[in-house]
Amino acid sequence: MSLNIVVLAKQVPDTRNVGKDAMTPEGTVNRSALPAIFNPEDLNALEQALILKDKNPGTKITLLTMGPPRAAEIVREGLYRGADGGVVLTDRALGGADTLATSYAISAAIRKIKDFDIIIGGRQAIDGDTAQVGPQVAEKLGLPQVTYAEEVDVKDGKAIVKRRLENGVETVESPLPLVVTVNGTAAACRPRNAKMIQKYKYAVSPSEKAKLEEGRAKVIESRPYLNIKEWSAADVEADPQQIGLTGSPTKVKGIVNVVFQAKESKQIEGKDAAGLEDLIKELITNHTIG
């Protein structure tokens, strides 16, 4: 059975590599020093979609991302790896959204995509680590959700999903359509395909196309597969009250940099045998050990 799959992917700053140069002398995060990447677990999600596509010929994968116009970069990345098309949901009015306002906007875009059997996202995005958008999109669309997936299969019109829990695994069955969120422990995404890179490297969104010279823009227009869709809040008929900062129930009251209280510590050289023995004796005497 051919499937329509929507993959939710977010472009995130690579918080895993917050090196010394990514922190300002004042101790704040220098966002611009961090590379923007395809959220790692969203790559695991894409791979599950690609596996389903391998098994179910005729399957169509649409990558959906919400973010600034430059998020078209990850749609291109998705195309290189085998997605069939993509949409960037972008609008100033969507800025400052918490997870609830984000999932509202994303679910509005999914409604516009209209044909979907499975929506697959990552478990969580590394910029916030909240893991909320998947379940909230499911609720907004009135669909079942299956979280922490490691393997997704479709049999007899039902999804069979293996899930990774704290202390074990569970396999569940759900009717379609549904929302699945995929764990980082699932199969890694296949590398980009050289042929696909050749085919899609000129794929652009309307805002990117606007910056091209006329001749090139015309060529792109003549090839529908090179056109990444770009939708505004109005395009997806989102209620202005429910998006962006206005639609976000949670507000950031304040942010502080993490500073740990330095202690006065006792120094012992590893070569100082007597010092090490004194330490052990001290810990035994004060009943910390022994």
Partner: peptide, 13 residues
Amino acid sequence: PAFGGNIVATIVN
């Protein structure tokens, strides 16, 4: 914690 643990945020509803 937010942003990979480099900052701590206080959130209210």
